[in-house]
């Protein structure tokens, strides 16, 4: 186990883009080499050493911990594409933290800005405060968002989390989001993601969902008209086999989506609800 410590020298005026801060990039490098890694400040190409004090020692990627201190709310893209090791951020962090990460862990002891864990492919992102909009979402124009991994946010998250999540039980890809409470359009265009909300959600949860499970343990203001009530359940089985117990009302949907599994039988005119996305709301 080795550790590299970064400390922000002073807060920046315009955003700093620091996707070079990953265990993958730091592994096996000397402090001087790490200080020379590139960061972007406006149109200028500068180095980590220009903005951070760097101490510690770095060895193998998977055994490496990078801990960062300071107000990083204007520092973007920390942990982008990382595939192993760990990053601990003590303070608020800017946009795109851990985007497209495929392995390892990021722990944010503070709040995160928009696009935290966007298009996550694996690994774990944990945020102890709140997170902005588009947590674990697909970037603009992508039809495949988060494909695997886990995001945990203790506080509330913004709108459109887990947009275009894409999971598959046979392929063992189970993108999962657990959060305190969520803004509108949670899990929109969800294709097989799992979302658990400990508290309340805003409007239109599960809009255009095809597969996937959304569990809301608090309140939801209004359920989309295209969701059909199935009944009350006492236990929910998630894709990974885990179970959640408690009294929930089960809904199937979104039935407004054409190419989903909610076929209407031509013969009987009846709706097949068995193989559809699920929305559970505490009774």
């Amino acid at each position: 186990m080795s550790e590299i410590k970064l400390k922000l020298k002073k807060e920046t005026e315009i955003p700093l883009e620091a996707e070079s801060i990953t265990p993958d990039n730091f592994a096996g490098k000397s402090i001087n080499e790490i200080k020379k890694l590139v960061v972007y400040y406006g149109r200028e190409e500068l180095t980590i050493g220009d903005f951070f004090n760097v101490t510690g020692k770095s060895e193998e990627k998977d055994d490496l911990i990078i801990s960062i201190n300071g107000n990083l709310s204007n520092v973007k893209r920390i942990g982008e594409n990382m595939s192993g090791g760990e990053i601990i951020i003590n303070g608020d962090v800017g946009m795109h933290v851990g985007n497209q990460m495929s392995g390892g862990k990021i722990q944010v002891n503070g709040n995160a800005d928009d696009w935290a864990g966007a298009m996550l492919k694996g690994g774990e992102l944990e945020i102890t405060g709140d997170a902005g909009n588009y947590v674990g979402s697909a970037y603009r124009g992508f039809w495949k968002g988060m494909t695997n991994g886990v995001i945990k946010v203790k506080g509330k998250i913004g709108v459109e989390a887990m947009l275009w999540a894409s999971g598959s039980v046979p392929a063992k890809r189970l993108p999962t989001l657990i959060c305190g409470s969520a803004g509108s359009f949670l899990g929109i265009h969800n294709h097989g993601g799992t979302i658990i909300v400990e508290g309340d959600v805003d409007r239109c949860a599960g809009a255009d969902q095809i597969k996937g499970i959304i569990v809301i343990k608090g309140k939801a203001p209004k359920i989309l008209p295209s969701f059909k009530k199935i009944g009350e359940v006492k236990e929910i089985e998630l894709f990974n086999g885990e179970k959640i117990t408690g009294k929930f009302i089960e809904y199937a949907g979104d039935h407004s989506v054409k190419k989903n599994h909610s076929t209407v039988s031509k013969k009987t005119g009846e709706l097949n609800k068995s193989v559809n996305g699920r929305l559970y709301i505490a009774a």
Partner: peptide, 8 residues
Amino acid sequence: ELLNAIRA
């Protein structure tokens, strides 16, 4: 919500 209902 209205668009959603119309689609369904």
